[in-house]
Computed example of a mutant assay.
Amino acid sequence: MTGWHAPETLIARYADGSLPDADAWSLEKHLESCASCAGRVSGAVRATAAGAVLADVRDAVLAAATPTPAEAPPLRTPRLLWAAAPAVRGAWLPAVLLVALGAVLLAHVAGFSGARPLLLAVAPVVPVAGVALSYGRHADPLHELAASTPSAGLRLVLTRTAVVLAVSLPLLTLAGLVLPSPGGPGAAAWLLPGLTLTLAALALGGWLGLRTATAVTGGGWLCAVLAPALAAPDGAVARHLSDQLSAYVGGAATQGGWAAAAALCAVLLAARRTAYDRLERF
Rank of each mutant, 00 (worst) to 15 (best):
A70T: 10
T198V: 07
P74W: 14
L19A: 11
T2W: 11
R116Y: 11
L222P: 09
L54V: 06
L172P: 03
L192Y: 04
G130V: 03
P67K: 09
G51H: 05
R40C: 11
C223H: 08
L75S: 06
T217H: 06
A22Y: 13
H108S: 09
A110N: 00
G90N: 00
L31P: 09
T196M: 09
A84T: 06
L226N: 05
G235I: 12
C223D: 00
A188D: 08
G102R: 04
L105Q: 01
V131S: 13
A271L: 12
L245C: 11
L105S: 05
V128E: 01
G219A: 10
S246T: 15
A213S: 09
V61Q: 05
A55P: 07
A38P: 06
A123G: 08
A12S: 14
S148C: 07
G102T: 02
E280G: 10
W190Y: 13
A72W: 15
L80Q: 04
S33I: 05
A162E: 00
P233I: 01
L142I: 00
A253W: 06
G111N: 02
T66A: 15
L192K: 01
A261R: 07
L241G: 04
A232Q: 05
S134H: 06
F112H: 08
Y14D: 01
A107M: 02
V167P: 04
R272Q: 12
G90M: 02
